[in-house]
Structures are given as structure tokens and as C-alpha cells.
Lab assay of single mutants.
Amino acid sequence: MDVFMKGLSKAKEGVVAAAEKTKQGVAEAAGKTKEGVLYVGSKTKEGVVHGVATVAEKTKEQVTNVGGAVVTGVTAVAQKTVEGAGSIAAATGFVKKDQLGKNEEGAPQEGILEDMPVDPDNEAYEMPSEEGYQDYEPEA
């Protein structure tokens, strides 16, 4: 019985440690998101679009440190934060509304985080759909 109880105690310690790591990862992701939003706020009209992409990228980098179902929630929060940063930029006159959601080359930025393969159960990952990809044929 002692062996059984000791095993359960060790398992509990492992769960607590994993929860603490997840909590730490979420806190880091939130900190990076805040950094990115402050970065966007300090940019001029020309830099705002690039700044919004930076927020998304920093958040995406930190999301990889967070495991399990938390990833889905962090990704949703990050996307809403990026959308909010863009709205703030438009409201303050840093950028025109028609410039939001495009990178410096004018290509749409939507789907940055949505296409990231995420499995809350950590069982399997699927690649994003290939609808947006084109076949590449090298020139002879």
C-alpha cells in the first residue's frame, strides 16, 4: 500500500510541476504579447503594419512553449490582441483601416495563427491545408 501511495504522490508532483510550467509559459506569452502591443503603439504610420505582424510573430513563438489545451486559448487571445492593436492603430490615425491585415508588401496577414497546427491532446499534428499553395516548377 505504501508503494501505491508513494507512486500516487510522485504522479501528483509531476502534474503540479507540469501545471506550473504551463502557467509560466502562458505568463511569458502574455508578456511578449504586451511587449508587441507597446511596440505597435510606438510606431509611426509606416511601421504600424509591420508592428502588428511582430506582435503576432512574438506571440506565436511563445505559444510553442505552452502545451496542451492552453495553446488553443493563448492563440485565440493573441489573435484578438493583434486585431485590437490594429483597431487602436486605425482609431489613433497611425494607419488607414484599409491597410490593416496586410503586410508591407500588401499581402493579407489573416491566418497567421489560424494555420498553425495545434492539437490540445498532444496526440497528432496535421499540416495546414494546401489550398493556398501553388506547385513550383523550376525553369529549365
Rank of each mutant, 00 (worst) to 15 (best):
residue 123 E to F: 13
residue 96 K to F: 13
residue 86 G to C: 13
residue 82 V to T: 06
residue 128 P to W: 06
residue 133 Y to F: 09
residue 52 V to S: 02
residue 92 T to Y: 06
residue 55 V to W: 15
residue 73 G to V: 13
residue 41 G to C: 11
residue 105 E to V: 09
residue 14 G to W: 04
residue 3 V to L: 04
residue 28 E to N: 02
residue 42 S to Q: 09
residue 82 V to D: 02
residue 126 E to H: 12
residue 126 E to T: 06
residue 99 Q to A: 13
residue 126 E to R: 09
residue 61 E to I: 06
residue 99 Q to N: 09
residue 24 Q to R: 12
residue 25 G to H: 15
residue 30 A to N: 00
residue 104 E to P: 07
residue 65 N to A: 06
residue 80 K to C: 07
residue 85 A to N: 02
residue 115 D to S: 05
residue 54 T to G: 09
residue 139 E to C: 03
residue 13 E to D: 05
residue 9 S to P: 00
residue 105 E to K: 02
residue 137 E to A: 07
residue 59 T to W: 14
residue 2 D to Y: 06
residue 47 G to V: 12
residue 99 Q to S: 10
residue 15 V to P: 00
residue 90 A to K: 05
residue 105 E to R: 13
residue 128 P to V: 03
residue 81 T to H: 04
residue 129 S to K: 05
residue 55 V to A: 05
residue 37 V to A: 06
residue 34 K to F: 14
residue 38 L to Q: 06
residue 42 S to K: 13
residue 100 L to W: 02
residue 62 Q to N: 07
residue 7 G to S: 15
residue 126 E to G: 12
residue 4 F to E: 00
residue 36 G to L: 04
residue 40 V to D: 00
residue 28 E to A: 09
residue 119 D to A: 13
residue 100 L to N: 03
residue 75 T to N: 08
residue 49 V to Y: 14
residue 20 E to K: 02
residue 21 K to N: 03
residue 60 K to L: 12
residue 57 E to N: 08
residue 79 Q to H: 11
residue 118 V to W: 04
residue 122 N to A: 04
residue 65 N to G: 12
residue 90 A to P: 03
residue 82 V to Q: 07
residue 9 S to T: 02
residue 89 A to P: 03
residue 24 Q to C: 03
residue 124 A to K: 13
residue 69 A to N: 05
residue 46 E to L: 02
residue 126 E to I: 11
residue 82 V to Y: 09
residue 104 E to L: 10
residue 117 P to Q: 13
residue 24 Q to W: 05
residue 59 T to F: 15
residue 2 D to E: 01
residue 60 K to E: 01
residue 118 V to T: 03
residue 62 Q to T: 08
residue 69 A to F: 13
residue 7 G to C: 15
residue 67 G to E: 02
residue 87 S to R: 03
residue 54 T to A: 11
residue 80 K to M: 10
residue 10 K to A: 10
residue 83 E to W: 10
residue 96 K to P: 05
residue 78 A to W: 14
residue 78 A to N: 01
residue 12 K to Y: 14
residue 21 K to H: 03
residue 37 V to C: 08
residue 75 T to I: 11
residue 18 A to E: 00
residue 125 Y to D: 11
residue 71 V to Q: 03
residue 15 V to S: 00
residue 2 D to I: 02
residue 127 M to S: 04
residue 85 A to E: 02
residue 22 T to Q: 00
